[in-house]
C-alpha cells in the first residue's frame, strides 16, 4: 500500500510533488504512488543545475528495469540543487519518495503556480480513481 500523501506538499496529476520551502524555492519529487507503479527504480537521470524548466516540461527521467518515465516539473523555475544520492542509490525513490528520494530543488519563477496544484486530499482521491 502506498504511504499517505503528506499535507505539506502539493501534487500534480502526473504524480509529482512540490514542497514550498517558503523562500522562493520548492523541492520536487515523485509520489509514493508513482514509485509503487514504477516498482524497482534502477536509474535516475538528474537535470543539470541551472536548467530552466517550464511547468509540465520534462525535468528528470526515472527508469525501472523495464520502463523509462519522464518526471515533469510541477512548477516553473530554475534547478538549483539535485539529489546526488540518487546516482548511487536510485532505489531511495522506492524507499522514501517523499523524503530522501527527492529529485531536485527549484527556484520558482512563479510561486503562484503552486496554487494550481492539488492538495493532499485531492491527490489522494485522484489516485483512488486511477486504481479503479
Amino acid at each position: 500500500m502506498a504511504k499517505p500523501n503528506p499535507a505539506d506538499k502539493k501534487y500534480s496529476k502526473d504524480h509529482e510533488w512540490a514542497k514550498d520551502n517558503s523562500d522562493g524555492t520548492a523541492t520536487v519529487g515523485i509520489t509514493d504512488y508513482a514509485q509503487e507503479m514504477l516498482t524497482d527504480i534502477v536509474f535516475v537521470e538528474l537535470p543539470a543545475i541551472g536548467k530552466k524548466v517550464a511547468k509540465g516540461a520534462p525535468l528528470a527521467v526515472v527508469e525501472s528495469v523495464k520502463s523509462v518515465s519522464d518526471v515533469f516539473a510541477p512548477v516553473s523555475g530554475e534547478v538549483i540543487a539535485v539529489n546526488g544520492a540518487l546516482e548511487d542509490d536510485p532505489a531511495l525513490v522506492n524507499r522514501d519518495a517523499f523524503g530522501e528520494g527527492w529529485i531536485a530543488k527549484m527556484k520558482m519563477s512563479d510561486a503562484a503556480e503552486l496554487g494550481s496544484l492539488m492538495d493532499a486530499a485531492a491527490y489522494t482521491s485522484l489516485i483512488k480513481e486511477e486504481k479503479h
Partner: peptide
C-alpha cells in the same frame, strides 16, 4: 502478466 511483485525480486 509482466510482473507480480517486482522484476528484480522475480529475477
Amino acid at each position: 502478466p509482466v510482473q507480480y511483485t517486482n522484476v528484480i525480486d522475480e529475477h
